[in-house]
């Protein structure tokens, strides 16, 4: 591809990733969440793959990141078994990390609330981003 395309894709990389991260992190307050934010991040990586099509990238890194995201998801769900049942929200309503108690009624959204839901959003976002870039890479490498 052109030089212009390469430079502009490198410039546009950081706003897209930050926007995707914003969608992931505020998943329990605004529309969006893990899957949608992950797709946005994957589009940034797809931009890189299309612009720099003469470089050879291997697939192993994305597969590793995907498994890290997935095992994080399942192991946090397993921790809940020690308290009550599987997937129990053991961080909500404790004033520890993510568990500020929110009272009933309309408010403007507190980032500190939600329990394990933001952690799950992070895991799903990481996993979706790497999985979709894996797919795009394997289409390009064929």
């Amino acid at each position: 591809m052109n030089r212009v395309v390469k430079i502009i894709s490198l410039i546009m990389l950081s706003p897209i990733i930050i926007f995707g991260g914003y969608i992931i992190c505020h998943g329990h307050l605004t529309p969006g969440g893990g899957f949608q934010g992950g797709v946005v991040i994957a589009s940034a990586i797809a931009l890189l793959i299309i612009a720099f099509e003469d470089k050879i990238i291997k697939n192993h890194l994305f597969s590793l990141i995907e498994t890290i995201g997935l095992t994080f998801f399942i192991s946090i769900a397993f921790v809940g078994i020690f308290k009550n049942t599987f997937f129990y929200n053991f961080l909500s309503n404790t004033n520890y990390i993510l568990g500020k108690t929110i009272y009933f009624g309309a408010n403007s959204g507190y980032l500190n609330s939600g329990g394990i839901i933001p952690l799950m959003n992070l895991a799903v976002g990481v996993e979706v981003a790497s999985a979709l870039s894996f797919i795009i890479l394997s289409i390009k490498n064929k």
Binding site: S63, L64, T67, L70, T71, I74, S75, F78
Partner: peptide, 8 residues
């Protein structure tokens, strides 16, 4: 869990 850990 094992299915997710297998690529590692």
């Amino acid at each position: 869990l094992t299915a997710f850990l297998l690529p590692l």
